[in-house]
Design a protein around this nucleic acid. Structure first.
Lengths: 215, 215
DNA sequence: CAGAAAAATGACCGAACAGTCATAAATTTA
DNA sequence: TAAATTTATGACTGTTCGGTCATTTTTCTG
């Protein structure tokens, strides 16, 4: 007898899914994809190894399900923010806010995103291509904000896609700071990154930019 | 009978070392650390697996020897460039040039540096700490250039270490562009990155920066 | 060139671990 | 509550691969 369109079974199954992904995020965060074992993940989820295979195809799929969830959420939020009206400055600020929010959201998973990013981008693998597409997509969502800003005379004529990627790189880089043990700081990284980027792309008052200054 | 301080044996040994590291760079670049096998590396070097162990302790050491070589070279070049006199702008431009040069130097190994960076920073492991120290060191070499620039009134008061890291992040990010297949471009990435960073840190003419502009 | 020393080899070993499956427990149904 | 069905288990399997070492090949020495 379904309640709200879901049977008892379905609800339990969904919950298990979520439990497993949560456990997976925890273990993957600590060990990385390669060194995390299914035994550990199962233990963290409070189930036996075999049970994992009732819910997921294999290790790769578990990992990917955990990652995809977060990436799609990021996209959704970016889409929303990008669609809002405002100056390029305001919208870029919001984009940055969203990205930092996602990073902070589970500090846990930040490490995975950061540490596996290079592997996923750089080498082949079952889901590498999908992952790369999601990255490109994110950049393509942001690029129009920059294009528009240029058109409106608010920004310098920077290449939009490259600039969007640069912003992403800067955000990812802040993760490196903590892993490198350079995060003692009083410095507000989010604000600093925005400052740096904004000054980098904004159109200075024409008086302020002498010819040849950027060569 | 030594010639120029080296016996025939020593020369041959050195050469073998170099051969192995070259082969290792090739294989690690294609497969990544985990998926590269010693059998492959040996084959690429034209020797048998066991022979590797006459020259290196284990897989980790082979990898690390290949990486360390490049990192120390980067440091040496940075030290040299940083020591030269000049405006902050000139010196930053040189620093960027050196970093791009190193990236281009073996396109091959770029992938490894890019793809393993996250793993080395994010997770533990035999050489992770040394790797992190080398990264920090590189940032500490660059930071004084920025500090000096601020002191001289050439740059805005940005946090030097964070800014130095940001520059590094941007350079690393350009590698991502090619792996993501976004490198079609006519855009000169080195020039773009410098532009972006320079505009980001330079002190605009005081007229050009209105109060509150960077908040 | 003979014998000693060094370098090279690759078959082999053992550990790690993803994935399987016969069996057991839990849950549903009648 | 008994049979049927779904869910869970964890011992087991097969494979991969880093590392070893007894044996062979090459190089050196006198």
């Amino acid at each position: 007898m379904p309640i709200e369109g879901k049977t008892r079974r379905e609800v339990l199954t969904e919950f298990r899914h979520a439990e497993i992904l949560a456990a997976a995020r925890k273990v993957f965060s600590e060990k990385g994809f390669r060194d995390a074992t299914l035994e550990e993940i199962a233990a963290a989820a409070g189930i036996a190894k075999g049970t994992l295979y009732l819910y997921f195809e294999n290790k790769e799929e578990i990992f990917w399900a955990a990652v995809r969830e977060r990436l799609l959420e990021l996209h959704a939020r970016l889409k929303e923010v990008v669609a809002r009206p405002g100056t390029a400055r305001e919208r870029l600020r919001e984009i940055l806010r969203v990205r930092f929010e996602m990073m902070r959201r589970d500090e846990q998973f930040k490490r995975v995103y950061f540490a596996e990013f290079g592997q996923l981008c750089g080498y082949g693998g079952p889901h590498a291509e999908e992952f790369r597409q999601l990255q490109v997509e994110a950049a393509r969502l942001v690029a129009p904000v920059i294009s528009q800003g240029i058109k409106d005379g608010e920004l310098r004529p920077v290449p939009p896609l490259e600039a969007a990627m640069a912003l992403t790189d800067l955000v990812r880089g802040t993760a490196a700071l903590s892993f490198l043990g350079l995060h003692e700081n009083h410095v507000d990284l989010e604000q600093f990154i925005f400052d740096l980027f904004w000054q980098g792309v904004r159109k200075g008052d024409s008086k302020g930019v002498r010819k040849g200054d950027s060569k």
